[in-house]
Amino acid sequence: MTLEAVALSVQQLDAGYDKHRVLINVSLTVAGGEWVALLGPNASGKTTLLHCVVGTMQVTSGSITVCGHSLRDDPTRARGKLGFACAPEKLPALLTGRQCLEVYAAAKGLAAIGADVLDLAERFQYIPMLDRFVGAYSLGTRQKLAVLLALLGEPQLLVLDEAFNGLDPASALALKHYLRDRVAAGKCSVLLATHALDIVERYADRAALLLHGRIAHEWRKDELAVMREKSEEGFEAALAAVAVEIEGERAAKAS
């Protein structure tokens, strides 16, 4: 499988609910084999952006292209390149984990579930839960299933929304290593919305800060490294300082 040079291209995207504009003129690119972290405070539009990217939310204007396929003109092919971890509470309570995996695998036309996904499931210690009803799962176990579903079929672009929430440390580490290895091998790209700055610090190739529905700032890997070294109080404080500075500039402009 060859990876596209550009896994995701979002151009001048506007989206919202009724009259409330959530995303304003957002442009973002994820290259093939790149891990991009999407940062931002609560209610800044991260989840909305991800839902636009996977096609479960209608955009007001702008364009989204996934691996060269326009989401508007060719949604089936574009979505076929995607893997999205849905919110854990949306998984069906009356299906077992095995049935959920089967439904997803069958829908993606897979004859069998990939060995790497099975291996990750074992590292998640998920196997004893396979034949239990999802309704009986804890938040962490649901999250594991949502991630495994997203990984089925070797998608070229993985879209993850707070995918590490609720995972135990061992499972979170297993997932980080799994994603890092796949990205490094050029097998997929990752767009991850997260508040976990250790992931940005150690694993992401690039980070984008979403503030009030706009991409306020982007950092390359080398810029992230410089910022990390400059800050005495750590990476978290450095990022927070940048966000506060941008917010201050915005407020000054507005006034």
Binding site: V54, T56, M57, R79, C86, V103, Y104, A107
Partner: peptide, 12 residues
């Protein structure tokens, strides 16, 4: 369900 189902993101 096309928007909020767990199956919504699938290309099916």
């Amino acid at each position: 369900s096309l928007v909020d189902s767990w199956l919504a993101p699938l290309a099916a």
